[in-house]
């Protein structure tokens, strides 16, 4: 039985393989970009507020900083308490065109030793966790030139 793939948050990312992108919104009046998406009203206080249109964010970014999580985070992060904790890496990446820093988990297998501030990364689809019926999907940052 194949499990359904469900985004951990609806509307934050879309696409498969090389077409995978984070989705933000952009104000039609002032061009401010929002991620996570802002669908209510533009948050630029100098802007009268325009229509907020969904846009894909740049695929590539540069590492602003990075760290890792050596201890099991509390709920609502989903982990299996019966398995030993496997640390994962977090990357804050700066998207040049949008001038925004977006936090994400690094692709599996990427450790802090593989990273440096300023290094180029790309956004790739990933799995956050799985249960019997569902694979909960998310985004990962992965250094460019590294194959999955």
């Amino acid at each position: 039985m194949s499990r359904t793939h469900t985004p951990v948050v609806e509307g934050w990312f879309a696409g498969q393989g090389d077409d995978f992108r984070l989705l933000g919104t952009r104000c039609a009046a002032c061009a401010s970009v929002f991620f996570p998406r802002e669908d209510g009203h533009c948050r630029n206080p100098r802007c009268p507020g325009g229509d907020l249109e969904e846009i894909p964010l740049s695929r590539r970014a540069r590492i602003w900083s990075y760290t890792d999580s050596r201890y099991r985070p509390p709920s609502p992060y989903v982990t299996n308490p019966e398995l030993p904790w496997e640390p994962y890496t977090l990357i804050a990446a700066e998207l040049e065109a949008e001038r925004i820093v977006v936090l994400g988990q690094a692709a599996p297998g990427i450790s802090v030793a593989d990273l440096a501030v300023g290094m180029e990364v790309e956004v790739v689809p990933g799995a956050l966790h799985e249960d019997t019926e569902t694979v909960w999907t998310t985004w990962h940052w992965r250094p460019t030139g590294v194959e999955a």
Binding site: W64, S65, Y66, D68, S69, Y71, P74, Y88, L90, T138
Partner: peptide, 22 residues
């Protein structure tokens, strides 16, 4: 931030510290 990233407060402190080092 906990549900999607498991990002505890210390992970943010780690990001700031690494940024200062760089």
């Amino acid at each position: 931030r906990f549900r999607v990233l498991g990002a505890t407060n210390p992970t943010y402190f780690g990001l700031y510290a690494r940024r200062r080092m760089a």
